[in-house]
Design a protein around this nucleic acid. Sequence first.
DNA 1: CTCATCCTTTAACAAATGTTAATGGATTTG
DNA 2: CAAATCCATTAACATTTGTTAAAGGATGAG
Lengths: 196, 196
Amino acid sequence: MNFEQLKEKTRSIINKVSTISEGSLDLVSDLIVIEIYEKGDVFIDRGKRNHKEYFVFEGVCRSFLLSPEGEEVTISFFLEDSVLSPNKTRTANQISHLNFQALTKLTVASLNADKFEQLMINHLDIREFGNMVLQNELLAKVEKEIGLASLNAKERLILFREKYHFLENLISHVDIASYLGITNVSLSRLRKSLIA
Amino acid sequence: MNFEQLKEKTRSIINKVSTISEGSLDLVSDLIVIEIYEKGDVFIDRGKRNHKEYFVFEGVCRSFLLSPEGEEVTISFFLEDSVLSPNKTRTANQISHLNFQALTKLTVASLNADKFEQLMINHLDIREFGNMVLQNELLAKVEKEIGLASLNAKERLILFREKYHFLENLISHVDIASYLGITNVSLSRLRKSLIA
DNA sequence: CTCATCCTTTAACAAATGTTAATGGATTTG
DNA sequence: CAAATCCATTAACATTTGTTAAAGGATGAG
């Protein structure tokens, strides 16, 4: 991928959230380093330092944590052409409090988070982009929280299908079940009940 | 409350999160307007404009939303001497997507969010304070999400008691139950089962 | 103080979800 | 290609949580 291709890919991802100027796009693109991971790779480890922002160029990944019982709980999915949670929202003192894992072959653009923060401070359009990412992140969390707190599992699965239609045939049902707050056995039961 | 008292109250709230300089404290305190609400008052309405940041000086409040079934779902509690979710994380285009309600007599300090954002841009210590609030906000959400997705209701009640032990005798159990993702009947049952 | 209202508790039953275990299909590895 | 492994499904049963209704207790208005 040459710089022009990289820039166009970045443009399309950023513009889906909030438009920025050509000059700002150049400033952002200049920070990008491409990283490639294989299916199953954990590319951000809870407890380790992480000082990057990420755009998902190709593939799908998830954030997850271990429950008190030691089971992996999927927090969020990130699809192709989307922006990962802002660094500030998933770290403390640059130490990650979440794990991130590639669920398919994954290509991401990574950016130094401190340099990106400086761009946000100095450029209104980049700041607005960053703030929109933040707002979308919180909005998604609130929506998920409402689902977990007030819907039953069947209703949550229906909403999941509306939002992540193609994931169900692409990734492990164990990961989907923990995202929905149920066991994979319950997920299988619900899938059957929704065929009719 | 005179300006000195207001400033000291603000200092203690901010310093619990991240220390700022005397000058920065003055800049923040100058933006403050005191607002007083009665128990039950909804002081931020979903769908209406809100362009303020808030510190809770006295009392307790909650954020809530209506589920698809029309039931109120408590998202978060905010205790005395804490900072409300940053404006950017609960609005889109300055339009609130959450309701906030006083659960006791409530005194809050409100600040113009745009002016506060400018302070964040221009002052590193204020920016770090704002970012810490943001991080804590997200951290709390992730913790709650893990609870809802991987613990049963009894375990969630135990964690709630560790975090908010005095709320249980202060506010309606209906609000607590919807926070825990259960009915108030189930909450009563769990309370009984935990006496032994 | 008394009545009305709201909230919490309790009970009985229904529904949803979890647990364990077995099976078969798909995929990977040697 | 064959064996091994992983994953989704299914079934039986246990447990948790929801629903509805009734009753008692606390709180606030008149």
